[in-house]
Design a protein around this nucleic acid. Structure first.
Length: 595
RNA sequence: GACCCCGUAGCUCAGUUGGAUAGAGCAUCAGAUUCCUAAUCUGAGGGCCGCGCGUUCGAAUCGCGCCGGGGUCACCA
């Protein structure tokens, strides 16, 4: 009945303000409701697809709505006829100076300039809160991201997913969700046994033994040396010659803890902090996978069956059919049913993972996973399992897996060579040391995550307009610099004479006023990169306005002989700076005061 | 072979709950510097939105089928 658009009320609980797009969306809704009362629109018609947006071409006016086109079919009339009725109602609004019908049935609205000046004041009043939304209605969203195996420092392969996940989490928070940032520690599989053995090797090394080259099947990186030294200090030679079963659990626990400390410090360099670090081993210990299996078996979603040979290529030499507990993922479009336990009775990754998702679902209204694209093949089975379990247990939960594509590292147009074999790869710490946190974060958000991207060290540090990070930061620095200069000359931002502002300034306000709706549409689409592109546009508009002053001193922010105009322009500059700051804040990028 | 992602200007990319004449940056060409930061800006040219069919008032956007590029196809994690 009510506009979906309005479920997302823009009212800020801290102030009386409603942002401009929200206010006029409400105005349009009011007109539609009136037409419903008059019988022009049917009582049961849905306004869900009605939008109030900026028109594509600024010459069409200030705002446009597609209401007539969306509702014509339901009203059993043609769009232009319905548009007449709607436009008539809107034209009666005092702040709407004209409502014109255009094209297939758009209604273009022109506003009294005071409406835009009012929005400018709202930006200033709401400050850091400008753009925040209550759209999420406090619903809890669990965003799981990074979840790198605790077997070494974070490297480039983890970076994009980390930034994308973190920015998405912030965006959802900004849009009114309660967000839990979660990291799943895979501390129960074979790879952490390998880690423990590798640590034991370094332990022996630290005790003076010549271990020679690191053998195949061990982690070779030097980052394990300090762990070996630490264990040697703590334990002496107690476990030097002992059989593996004597020391493995202890070494594993110690090594995982040290690796997680390393990973957390790497994440901190990126400005990333998780709320929950969930342990797979603890999940096993709590018997969660057993519970899930029991339920799935009772509902015939797990059965004992023979696993098919891998498809599309010759089966491995040692392939032999074996009976395992299989989840019926083929019922959900997967190629084959997937094992939840191995032949030795231990849980597969998938078996534990489905139980893990049920654990997350217990404390959240919605789940989002951020995964690397190399795991794309396992999306169907986990979505199937979560759907089966959550719906079957009476707690259906929206669950989305976002795949993040690979990043190709470049340096001056040439691919950067990395050798994982020797443990020689580019870590996140290396990268941040070279180009800085802000550059890494912003650059990772200048492409949609599901498209592959290149990251060129030479280009991203370039301080020019070709580099979006600097372009946006420069716009903010420019605002700050102007305010500093103005203060020295005895001017200050003032809302007293906003009516002095002309068409060019209002164009800038129009752009800034879009921030709240960009936030909502980005949050709805779960796409933080839209904020980055928006900020680039806003920065471009600010630079363009600035440069009007090159030719015409009367168009500068500071006009010495006109204090009223200067006060109003500074007020505008301050507000634009605020919006840029708010947007960068969502992305986790610092807004610098000078470059 | 199957599944997932991508295909938009010479290049790098935005733009999908279906909307008006498809947008930026780079590169190319023509301009702006006694100026609050020119680390910038103004303007011009440049497009069968990979191809075909369909859905409808309307498709870059949705569906089906192709073509091209990348990824994945363990009892691994």
């Amino acid at each position: 009945m009510h506009l979906q658009y309005f479920a997302a009320t823009r009212e800020n609980p801290m102030t009386e303000h409603k942002t401009l797009y929200a206010a006029y969306a409400a105005t349009v809704e009011k007109a539609l409701l009136a037409l419903q009362t008059e019988g022009v629109l049917p009582a049961d018609c849905s306004f869900a697809n009605v939008a109030v947006e900026p028109p594509r071409d600024a010459s069409h006016g200030d705002l446009a709505t597609n209401a007539a086109m969306v509702l014509a079919k339901q009203a059993k009339t043609n769009p232009r006829a319905l548009a007449e009725s709607i436009a008539e109602k809107l034209d009666a609004e005092p702040s709407i100076t004209s409502a014109e019908i255009a094209g297939p049935g758009f209604i273009n609205l022109r506003l009294d300039p005071a409406a835009w000046l009012g929005e400018l004041a709202a930006i200033s009043d709401m400050g850091e809160g400008y753009g925040r939304s209550t759209m999420g209605e406090g619903r809890t969203v669990n965003v799981e991201y990074v979840s790198a195996n605790p077997t070494g420092p974070m490297h480039m392969g983890h970076c994009r997913g980390a930034v994308v996940g973190d920015a998405l989490a912030s965006l959802l928070e900004f849009a009114g969700h309660k967000v839990t940032r979660e990291y799943y520690i895979n501390d129960a599989g074979g790879q952490v046994d390998t880690l423990a053995r590798s640590a034991h090797l370094r332990y022996r090394e630290a005790l003076g033994e010549d271990i020679g080259d690191i053998p195949e099947g061990y982690y070779p990186g030097d980052y394990l040396k300090p762990i070996g030294e630490y264990l040697a200090r703590e334990l002496g030679d107690k476990y030097k010659e002992e059989p593996e079963e004597e020391w493995l659990p202890y070494f594993r626990a110690e090594a995982v803890e040290q690796m997680m400390a390393l990973i957390k410090s790497d994440l901190a360099l990126l400005g990333i902090h998780h709320d929950i670090f969930a342990s797979e081993a603890a999940l096993h210990a709590a018997g969660k996978p057993d519970e899930a299996e029991a339920w799935l078996r009772a509902h015939d979603l797990v059965y004992d069956g023979v696993l098919e040979a891998p498809k599309g290529k010759a089966p491995p030499d040692d392939w032999e059919p074996v009976e395992l507990p299989l989840f019926r993922s083929t019922k959900f479009g997967d190629d084959q049913d997937r094992p939840i336990r191995k032949s030795d009775g231990k849980w597969t990754y998938f078996g534990a993972d489905l139980a893990y998702h049920m654990q997350k679902a217990a404390d959240a209204d919605e789940l989002i996973d951020i995964w690397g694209a190399d795991h794309a093949g396992t999306v169907k089975r986990i979505k199937a399992a979560v759907a089966a379990l959550s719906e079957g247990q009476g707690n259906p939960i929206p669950f989305d897996v976002k795949l993040v594509q690979m990043v190709q590292l470049m340096r001056g147009g040439e691919p950067v060579k990395m050798s994982k074999r020797s443990g020689n790869f580019i870590t996140i710490a290396d990268m941040i040391e070279e180009v800085g946190k802000d550059v890494v974060r912003f650059t990772m958000l200048t492409r949609k995550p599901e498209a592959q991207m290149e990251f060129d060290f030479a280009k991203v540090v370039e301080a020019s307009k070709d580099n979006p990070v600097f372009y946006v930061q420069y716009a903010h620095a420019r605002v700050k610099s102007t305010l500093r200069k103005a203060a020295e000359a005895g001017f200050a931002a003032s809302a007293e004479d906003l009516a002095q502002l002309g068409e060019e300034e209002i164009a800038l306000i129009r752009n800034a006023a879009q921030f709240p709706r960009i936030v909502e549409s980005a949050a709805k689409a779960r796409e933080a990169h839209r904020i980055a592109f928006y900020l680039y546009d806003l920065a471009a508009e600010l630079h363009a306005f600035w440069n009007l002053g090159n030719d015409n001193p009367q168009k500068r922010f500071i006009v010495e002989q006109d204090a009223a105009l200067t006060g109003a322009r500074l007020f505008l500059a301050d507000a634009i700076g605020q919006v840029i700051r708010n947007g960068l804040g969502v992305l986790g990028v610092d807004a610098v005061d000078s470059l």
